[in-house]
Design a protein around this nucleic acid. Sequence first.
RNA 1: GGAGAGGUGGCAGAGUGGCCGAUUGCACCGGUCUUGAAAACCGGCGUGCCGCAAGGUACCGGGAGUUCAAAUCUCCCCCUCUCCGCCA
Length: 423
Amino acid sequence: MLDLQFICDHSDEVKKNCEARGVTVDVDAVLQFREDRNKLITAGDELRRQAKETSSKIPNASAEERPALIELGKKLRDEVSEAEAKQKEVEVKLYEQQSLIPNMTHPDAPVGGEDDATELRVVGDKPNFDFEPLDHVDIAAKLDLIDFEAGSRVAGHGFYYLKNDAVMLELALIQFALMKVRSEGFTLYTTPDLARDSVLEGIGFNPRGEETQIYSVSGTDLSLVATAEITLGGAMKDQTVDITDLPIKVAGLSHCFRTEAGAHGRKTRGIYRVHQFTKVEMFGFTGPDVEQSNALHMQIVRIEEEIFQALGIPYRLIDTATGDLGGPAYRKFDLEAWMPGRGEYGEVTSASNCTDYQARRLGIRCRSAEKKGTQFVHTLNGTAISCARALIAVLENYQQADGSVVVPEVLRPWVGKDVISVS
RNA sequence: GGAGAGGUGGCAGAGUGGCCGAUUGCACCGGUCUUGAAAACCGGCGUGCCGCAAGGUACCGGGAGUUCAAAUCUCCCCCUCUCCGCCA
């Protein structure tokens, strides 16, 4: 959520930003609701003041004065409740509109839609196969690495069983990513796979809406998390930290569950788009200025690149265009790995600087000796390794003519072999 | 899941209907004293919202209620601790 004062002081900029992001919001309505609300607050405060004054007179009032004061108190109480109801009504409308306004955008982010993203760099050499490369589904079939049938039988389309060396490969990817982020100063966590709806909402997910991406548990206020971003960010909900404790860098391993509503029929072969996968996510809290959050953003992107470089997987780095940014993101970089079976790049990581947008809704503040009051921290998130897609990249880039797959060198300690071959 | 005890400002911990936005201690900041420090003493010290300001208002886990008046009484929910049950 954007700061209300900021919206009012910079309404033209906010409008322009909404336009660039392809979001339709009535910014003027927000200004109007705010004005209405402020008047109601002032009026309500005055009524409460009178009510308090009246009540405070009663204990010392004479028996004759008392009944009149009590009557006045009752009248004021009713007026206060009426005023509060009106105020609440306006605040609901205000909040609704305000929530629709996306974060402001980094000045360097390209303006436009998906195709307008800036390709910042292309790293690594695509493998030269002297044979027709297979996609990960066929590779996995030959090597008996994934059981899609069992997945469907047990949980439906979009679920899968990893099997044999794919299990070791997945765990190796996790281990490798965890070691890497720990060496970069991130505190490691495994996090809950369920979270309260209020936490999901704070991060920017809409758990029970019509087109929700989220599975929710009926009869509870819990939902399955779509990413550990939810639990890592949510862990600090309503907390105030000392500014000298920032930045806080954490990383979490969790399962991720997504309904993928409306994604049917679009490049859904294999484990590219699935309802459940495992991911190591980085999350950061920094002091409240973009210099600090941008610096951590760059570190997160650098780590992501180094992970894929170490895995020996060619990729390109994308600076996401305004129209493709989620509401909370100020800027977002995606790593897209080369996937020979698909014959194209596929998104494998995503790193966002959300500035204070998430923190405002989650109530994560910091306190400093210099400034009175508190300020909202900046939050960032980025993928260290997302197993399903990383697995695709490994299998497809490391496939051999004989159907075997060479294990990337950095993963061998955990996989326990150099090559995965037909047994 | 059952029984009991709790949740108050950065921490500790009073407060059971009006004198309480809240006693006190610690921590913290400023001052006096001191060669310096400690101790002692004096003063300050929560957050949000409205307001140009003076000031007002809200907040004692969260929500609803009773009352002229709620940290305090009632109900629901969340959380923590102890014991019991169950269990990887």
